[in-house]
Amino acid sequence: MIPAPFAYARPTTVDEALQAIADGGEDVKIMAGGQSLIPVMRLRLAAPETVVDLSKVAELRGVRDDGDAIVIGAMTTHHDVLVDPLIAQHAPLIAEATETVADRQVRARGTFGGALAHADPAGDLPAVALALDAEFVIAGPGGARRTVPAADFFVDYLTTALEEGELLVEIRVPKLAGEWGMHYEKFNRVAQAWSIVAVAAAVRREDGQIAEARIGLTNMGPTPLRARAAEAALAGAAASADAIAAAAQSAAEGTSPSSDLNGQADYRRHLAQVLTRRAVTAAAGL
């Protein structure tokens, strides 16, 4: 299939991009890597009036150290995320999850920011960003910037806090203090497939105990979710198989997973428990 016709803008700066979005008419789509958008346009499930292609906006690419956080440019490709030393050092969970995204050709084009702005609950990176308490830096008309915490960024199914005319610029991932272990536990049927359910876990151990756990759930509702009840049960719990298993029992609390070809809601709830146990166990180094 061939996409429906659209006007095309290829800005080279964030300011130009914001202008292009403002000028683009009623129905503007911002294209990052295009690896989800182009297929959807080919199937004519999307037929935007204007496509604003960010691929030449160099300032949106790359990862930098910003003191207490690392900052990942929205247009940093999955491939670049995988080979980035700062991410490897401070947020290996992102790399681990990114490695499971689609396939190498898609990872060569697809971007970190694009995946987050798409906010597909079955996508792997939103739950990771949520688990790491990432912050989303958004540029608006006129260049004004605002920062939204991950907990507020994912609003609903494929819907984020990004308003019309706004652009996701970069993602700040706070550096974690203390001894953290991380693991992304993905469950899917074939290599290329979206997650049926996945669990992103980051665990801080202290004196043989789990001092703190952050658990992000992929595809357990219209948005990525934190498994708050399980996190609470883990805080201060013994770093033991039994304690983790007990805490993981509450992983699906407060979730509202969908039923589809790959699994019905009750099965997804069950998976969330099993995968949370596995993810936390691995993150805790057990």
Binding site: Y8, R42, D53, H79, R104, A108
Partner: peptide, 21 residues
Amino acid sequence: GACTVHLDGAAVKSCTVLAVQ
């Protein structure tokens, strides 16, 4: 992946890249 080519040295799916890109 049948359409895979190298674009600027990286393998990409040429059905998921616009010619203008």
